[in-house]
Design a binder for these strands. Structure first.
Lengths: 246, 246
DNA sequence: AGTCCCAATTGATCTGGGTCAAAGTTGGCC
DNA sequence: GGCCAACTTTGACCCAGATCAATTGGGACT
C-alpha cells in the first residue's frame, strides 16, 4: 500500500529479463508505456496480493522470487506457481486475484495500471500474442506439475523440483545437459512442501536421502550442488529432457 | 487418419456451443473460415493425438468428451485436462502435441488447419484475445486442480470431480446453487482415478461411501443424482462457490 | 435365456508418507 | 561473542490409500 514508485525512464532491465511486454517492445512503445508503468518493491515474506482482492495492475517480476498459493479454510495450502524474473502476474480482463501472491525473497515488480494496459493491448496485437504464448507456457507447466502432484513419489517430487529450479537458474546450454550445477534454493522446506503436496518433514527426509545417495550435495541448508543433472532427472522420473515446466 | 470431412456450409452448432472462435464470429469471417475448417469424428477410445506427434490442426470439441493425459514410461498416467464441448485443443505457435488426447465418448471435433489459422489469427486480433481468455480459464482450472491433487483427501477429490462435472453439465443458474442435480458420469472409474491421482479401487470405495452417506445416489454405474449440491461442495472442501475449475 | 466380457465392487493386507515430538543448526541482533 | 528465534533434521508411531485378489453385475451378442 505504499505509493507506487514512478520511473519515467526506460526500463533498464527489460532488454535481458523482462520479457512480458518489453522483449518485443520498441522504443516508441516504451515511451507510451511510461505513463502507465511503475516499479514497486516488496520485502521477503510480504504478501503482494491476497486471493479475491481487486487487482489494479498487471505486471511482471523483475528480480526476486514470488509464489502463487491457494489455501483451504482449514489451512491446507498448495503452491500453484513459482514466479521467477520475467514471469507475468495478473489477468487482463478479470478484476479479482485468483491466488495469493507472496514474495519469497525481496521482489521488484514492474507494474502496469490495468485499465490502460488493457487499452494498450487492444491497440497492440503483438502484446496479446505474446501474452497468449506466455500463458500457454504456464499452462503447460501447470499440467506438467499435475503429473508430479498426482503420480510421483516423494523422492521423485523433490528431484523434479530441484531439476526445475536448476534449469531455470542457468542458461539452457542445449545438448550439454548432464554437467555439474550449483545453485541456491530460494525456498524454505515448508515452501517446498507446499509446492509438492508433502509435509516439511518428508521434504527434509528426502533431501537427506538424496544427499546420502550422492544425487545432491548440500552446503548449509540452501546451497546445492548437483554433480550429475542426468542422474537427478532420472530420479525425477522424467522420461525426456522435459522441455517446459515452470 | 481418415480424410477430413469437409462441410462448406456455416457451422450449425457454433451459435450455441462452439465458442473457441465462432462465438464472436460474424458471418463474413465464417465464410472466410470455411476453406480452412473441417469436421472430424473420433470413436470412443480412439486416440486423437499422441504426445509428441506433429499437430497439423487446432480446433475445438463440438460434441462428446475427450481427455488430456500424460504418461510416465512405467505406465503411471495422469489426466491433465478434460475436454468438454466448446473446449479448445491445440497450440498455435507450437508444432508438437504436449499430451495424449483420447476420445472418451464418440467425439466430433471442429478443426482448423494450423497454418491458415495462425495467419487468420495475425489478421484478426479478437481471435487472439478470445484464445487468451480461454487459455487463462484453463490455467485457472489447472491450478485449482493442483490444490485437489496436492492437498485433498480421496473423498474430497471424488466430491470435487463430481461437482465439476455437475456444474459443467447444466446451465449455471446463479444464486440457486443447491438444487438436486442429475447427470451421467462420462468417465470410467479408471479415468476418474487418473484424473484424481488415485487408484480405481479407491475411487470405487469412495463412491460407495458417498452413496452410503446419502451425498449422491447411484442408478446403475454411471447415472448420478445429487440431492443437494451444497452438501456435495462441502464434501469437496470448497470454501466458496468456486468460480472456475475446468 | 444364456454366455461372454469388461466395468465395478469388495475384502485383506501392506506401506509411504503423515503426525507428533524432540533435538540440532544457523544467522541476525544486541 | 552470545543469545534468540526461526528453520531444519531426526525418531517413533500410525493411518489413508495402494496393492493383491476374488467376486459381482450388466449390457451386447447370439
Amino acid at each position: 500500500m505504499n505509493t507506487p514508485n514512478f520511473k519515467p525512464t526506460k526500463c533498464d532491465v527489460c532488454p535481458i529479463r523482462h520479457r512480458a511486454v518489453c522483449a518485443r517492445c520498441n522504443a516508441d512503445e516504451l515511451v507510451e508505456l511510461d505513463s502507465i508503468k511503475y516499479y514497486r518493491t516488496y520485502e521477503a515474506g510480504q504478501t503482494v496480493i491476497w486471493a479475491g482482492d481487486k487487482m489494479s495492475f498487471v505486471g511482471s517480476v523483475v528480480s526476486g522470487i514470488a509464489t502463487l498459493t491457494q489455501t483451504m479454510e482449514d489451512g491446507r495450502t498448495q503452491m500453484v506457481g513459482l514466479l521467477l524474473p520475467s514471469d507475468f502476474v495478473g489477468r487482463p480482463g478479470r478484476d479479482g486475484a485468483a491466488y495469493n501472491v507472496i514474495a519469497t525473497t525481496d521482489v521488484v515488480m514492474c507494474c502496469f495500471r490495468k485499465k490502460p494496459f488493457e487499452e494498450l493491448m487492444e491497440r497492440t496485437p503483438h502484446i496479446a500474442h505474446r501474452l497468449l504464448e506466455m500463458t500457454l507456457d504456464e499452462l503447460d507447466a501447470a499440467r506438467e506439475w499435475m503429473l508430479v502432484l498426482g503420480r510421483k513419489t516423494a523422492r521423485e517430487k523433490i528431484a523434479s523440483l530441484l531439476s526445475i529450479i536448476a534449469r531455470r537458474n542457468t542458461a539452457p546450454t542445449p545438448g550439454e545437459s548432464s554437467d555439474a550445477m550449483v545453485f541456491d534454493l530460494p525456498l524454505t522446506r515448508e515452501a517446498m512442501a507446499d509446492y509438492l503436496g508433502l509435509t516439511l518433514e518428508t521434504v527434509s527426509r528426502q533431501m537427506s536421502a538424496l544427499k546420502r545417495d550422492g544425487v545432491i550435495q548440500l552446503d548449509g541448508k540452501r546451497h546445492i550442488t548437483v554433480p550429475d543433472m542426468g542422474r537427478l532427472m532420472e530420479e525425477a522420473g522424467d522420461d525426456s529432457d522435459g522441455g517446459f515446466l515452470i
